[in-house]
């Protein structure tokens, strides 16, 4: 299901956070939202999930206005996995994931076998089946993040919004998380994720939207959008797009503005490729 944003605007406390954005996000694809801290990535995801209300404009999923829908109906279509999704430490993992069934359950209906099955599949999908019975309090940051994602999947949405899925994850877990999102998109789910690492966006996204100061700076296929010139302009860093030696995908090498190439063999080489891309900045 494609997502259409038309003139979406959002002010908070008199400040414009999202500035009349127009964008079309393809259905059944992985769209990456990239941009510097404070560009409005998380806010845009919150507006799509209607966790916050756009000041003006409309957001439509396959032509149906999201803000105009009833809350429960919308929550059956759109799920949000937060960056640091809060989970009550008293819950066990399965109970936490079962909360994703909330929009599907009536006020008096008990959680049924079908719901448990869906929760089990969601845990399976994020590779978290092994700790289904554990208390959330015992989990590491990365494990919690998977539980938050599993809860979103248990909502059985058509549109999955994921804020910073690689935050707090080690290198291997970052790739696993991105593989998972790309795989979900291949299966037909529309996935929108805020990412800091441009090389991740280049490697995994089908569509990239670059945000800066609440505006869309560029949008399109990663290979066309993520140019050295754009990265330098948006982030104020030096950038060069090279070919990934293993995958052949674009790799965005960045360096601080004043950096110069060091002599070969020097231990003070220029900022390593793709590092400093903010995967650990955690400020969204």
């Amino acid at each position: 299901m494609s997502l259409d944003l038309s003139r979406v605007h959002f002010d908070r406390a008199g400040r414009t956070i999202i500035d009349s954005i127009d964008a079309t996000l393809p259905g059944g694809a992985l769209t990456a939202l990239v941009g510097p801290n404070g560009a409005g990535k998380s806010t845009l995801l919150h507006l799509v999930a209607a966790v916050e209300r756009a000041t003006a404009g409309d957001l439509a999923l396959d032509g149906r206005s999201l803000p105009g829908m009833r809350r429960r109906e919308r929550a059956r279509l759109v799920a949000l996995a937060e960056q640091q999704g809060e989970v009550d430490a008293q819950l066990d993992v399965e109970a936490s994931v079962l909360l994703g069934r909330t929009p599907h359950l009536g006020a008096f209906a008990a959680v049924g076998a079908g719901d448990r099955e869906i929760a089990a599949r969601a845990l399976d999908a994020v590779g978290a089946t092994a700790f289904a019975g554990r208390s959330v309090a015992e989990l590491s940051g990365g494990e919690r993040q998977r539980v938050v994602l599993a809860r979103a999947l248990a909502q059985q949405p058509e549109l999955l919004l994921v804020d910073e899925p690689t935050n707090h994850l080690d290198l291997s877990a970052q790739l696993t998380a991105l593989e998972l999102l790309a795989g979900l998109a291949r299966e037909g789910l529309t996935v929108v994720t805020a990412l800091h690492d441009l090389s991740h966006a280049a490697a995994y996204a089908d569509h990239v939207i670059v945000l800066a100061d609440g505006r869309v700076v560029a949008a399109g296929a990663p290979g066309e959008v993520l140019t050295a010139e754009l990265v330098e302009r948006v982030y104020g860093v030096r950038a060069q797009v090279v070919e990934h030696p293993i995958t052949g995908r674009p790799l965005i090498a960045v360096a601080a503005p004043g950096s110069h190439a060091a002599a070969p063999g020097s231990s003070h080489a220029a900022t390593p490729v793709a590092a400093g891309s903010g995967a650990h900045a955690g400020l969204g």
Binding site: P26, G28, A29, E94, A113, R116, A120, L123, D124, A125, V126, G127, T129, A132, G133, S172, L175, T176, L178, E179, L180, A182, G183, A185, R186, A203, Y204, D206, H207, A221, H244, I246, T247, G248, R249
Partner: peptide
């Protein structure tokens, strides 16, 4: 949008099915 043919890793998540014991415990 076509999915890129090559991914950064060939790791596969989500292959293991929950064991019956786990299911019983969960319920």
């Amino acid at each position: 949008m076509s999915a890129p043919a090559t991914r950064g890793t060939d790791r596969r998540v989500a292959e293991s099915r929950p064991s019956p014991a786990r299911e019983a415990q969960n319920s």
